[in-house]
């Protein structure tokens, strides 16, 4: 089945997904790499008329050791903090070259991909500029919640309490001392046509959102939680389960904002205690029950606020 059939049927069961692989095996990702799985399916959903600009980071380094590449679509890496700008350059180039009749008129998905640091820390300025200018492109943040490429240093998107090598738990520290930066909200503040959060454990939700992002005329921002066994300290076979727990506990919520209207796309009937998610990962091993209770309270409040916001519309 190709993507067009899946799209028409709006069916994203595993057997209905495209068989073409645009992210080739042989990449150097860790065993159980969440981001690699995200790349694989994002490209399946978008198909071959896609060009990817990727930031320095795990995704770049595991996929492009010269003279090999895992990419079966045109792909470019230039630097760390500028992926949105690089993608913007590609987008306008296609636009003007088509207008001038130098290249054939066709729909090409221009995709920028960066990790959480490349998006929300060092890449935030370029991201904001590109969103504000309204380029017709899809920005994908694959969020593994720290600088995993350089060995697990904290980013602004590392969750509260998590141990990283630069937010270690020590005698006077509980690990990351700040709450996760809400980059999707920052993206939404640019009033772009489409913003969504997604997780590799909810594949049909992810597919639906990639397709909506591709259909949007103008910038689309997709924030994909992609668990990392190496940095989060859980066994490699648990990648999908950990993502599922992040959503079921309300730690990471799946929603979309279409033309400013927010909607929860995966509603959790019975919420999992946050402690189950936290205790499944070594990066939170040092937290006390009290710490976990604090996180639980805040997660609860945020989830209720999200429900209220989504219900108003």
């Amino acid at each position: 089945m190709d993507m067009e059939q899946s799209r028409q049927k709006r069916s994203f069961a595993p057997r209905a997904l495209p068989h073409e692989e645009y992210f080739a095996p042989g990449h150097r990702g860790c065993q159980g790499c969440g981001p690699a799985l995200a790349f694989r399916h994002i490209l399946k959903a978008l198909g071959p008329n896609t060009v990817v600009a990727e930031a320095t980071g795990c995704g770049e380094i595991i996929s492009s050791p010269y003279p090999q590449s895992s990419w079966r679509v045109p792909w470019i890496h230039t630097a760390f903090e500028n992926t949105a700008a690089t993608a913007a350059g590609i987008e306008v180039a296609y636009k003007v070259l088509m207008r001038k009749g130098r290249i054939p008129e066709e729909r090409i998905n221009v995709v920028a991909m960066a990790g959480d640091g490349g998006t929300g820390d060092i890449g935030l300025q370029a991201l904001s500029g590109a969103l504000e200018r309204g380029h017709d492109f899809i920005y994908v943040c694959y969020d593994n919640e720290a600088y995993m490429n350089t060995g697990m240093q904290r980013s602004g998107l590392t969750p509260f309490g998590a141990f990283t090598t630069t937010s270690p738990a020590g005698k006077v520290s509980k690990g990351q001392s700040t709450w996760k930066k809400d980059v999707p909200a920052i993206a939404a503040a640019h009033h772009i046509p489409y913003v969504a959060t997604a997780c590799i454990s909810y594949m049909s939700d992810l597919y639906r959102k990639i397709l909506r992002a591709a259909e949007a005329r103008g910038p689309a921002y997709l924030h994909v939680l992609a668990p990392c066994p190496t940095g989060w300290r859980y066994p490699s076979e648990k990648t999908i389960e950990i993502g599922r727990m992040a959503v079921r506990s309300g730690v990471f919520n799946l929603y979309e904002i279409v033309d400013g209207k927010k909607r929860l796309t995966v509603k959790v009937r019975e919420r999992l205690p946050v402690s189950e998610y936290i205790k499944a990962q070594g990066r939170f091993r040092h937290l006390t029950d009290e710490d976990i209770a604090y996180i639980q309270r805040r997660v609860y409040e945020e989830y209720e606020a999200l429900l209220a916001e989504a219900a108003q519309i």
Partner: peptide, 13 residues
């Protein structure tokens, strides 16, 4: 920084 990054993307395209 983004000026040159855009130029790089555009020239590559």
């Amino acid at each position: 920084h983004s000026a040159m990054s855009c130029c790089i993307g555009a020239a590559a395209a």
